[in-house]
Design a protein around this nucleic acid. Sequence first.
DNA 1: ATCTAATGCTCCAGAAGCTATAGGTTTGGA
DNA 2: TCCAAACCTATAGCTTCTGGAGCATTAGAT
Lengths: 137, 137
Amino acid sequence: MYSIGDLSRRTGVKIPTIRYYEQMGLIAAPERSEGNQRRYEKRELERLAFIRHARDLGLSIESIRDLLALSQHPERPCGEADRIAKEHLVTVREKIAQLQKLESELERIVACNGDHTIGDCYVIRALADHSMCGTDH
Amino acid sequence: MYSIGDLSRRTGVKIPTIRYYEQMGLIAAPERSEGNQRRYEKRELERLAFIRHARDLGLSIESIRDLLALSQHPERPCGEADRIAKEHLVTVREKIAQLQKLESELERIVACNGDHTIGDCYVIRALADHSMCGTDH
DNA sequence: ATCTAATGCTCCAGAAGCTATAGGTTTGGA
DNA sequence: TCCAAACCTATAGCTTCTGGAGCATTAGAT
């Protein structure tokens, strides 16, 4: 039996976050002690570790809920789980591409060295005037 | 004179977002028509375009507030504006690095083709068992 | 058995950056 | 003049937590 603090230490999920997940239905409401404190089993530790890992990977609560539901039915084909992961991979790649555009623009903007005044600062002018951009956002 | 709708069309910032920016103090409360509708000048159009651009680049409202304040003082040295942009560049690069880790992990996870059952699905197992990860998140 | 520090409980608010809805008013063109 | 489109305010909601207030329980030391 783990207290909520044990669970938190073992999974790295903060205590209020665990309660939040319970509220959101990602983990079931656990048994309680005589004094109304949450008491967890190993099963729930594993489930929380799963959630933590998926969150680290940037999956939404919604996606995780779906994956958890799927994992309750080991006999079904796993195409759906695959679809969720693949979809997520696409969005991750899109984010990377977008951030790399920003990176190169910021690099250009930052080329000045702070040794002049705001009046002719490239940072300020670049932000004021979109047409100075190389990219197409 | 632009209505809020004109401003929205010209900058691509949605109407409720413009009002939100006003509330947050990023743009000043503009003049009003007889019937209490917002009427903007070109100056405010430019300021909003600046904000839009900076947001596109992922700068926080806080950072933008700082940059806007700086741009009111063209005589000061621009080291501060530079610092803000550079700092942001660092966080953008960190995000990219992190997402690339996720990308490679998701690639491995997704290698299965959905032609078997949940019971031995790599997606589900990989999420359940952190030790299967190559990276160190 | 008692004390105490650590831990837990619930409820509520806030953070970021919007977005949406409800219910009403103003504007601009036919 | 009339009507639809656009505008107004106020408020609530979204997502994913995080933190605090105020009180109750637990575990270990004595």
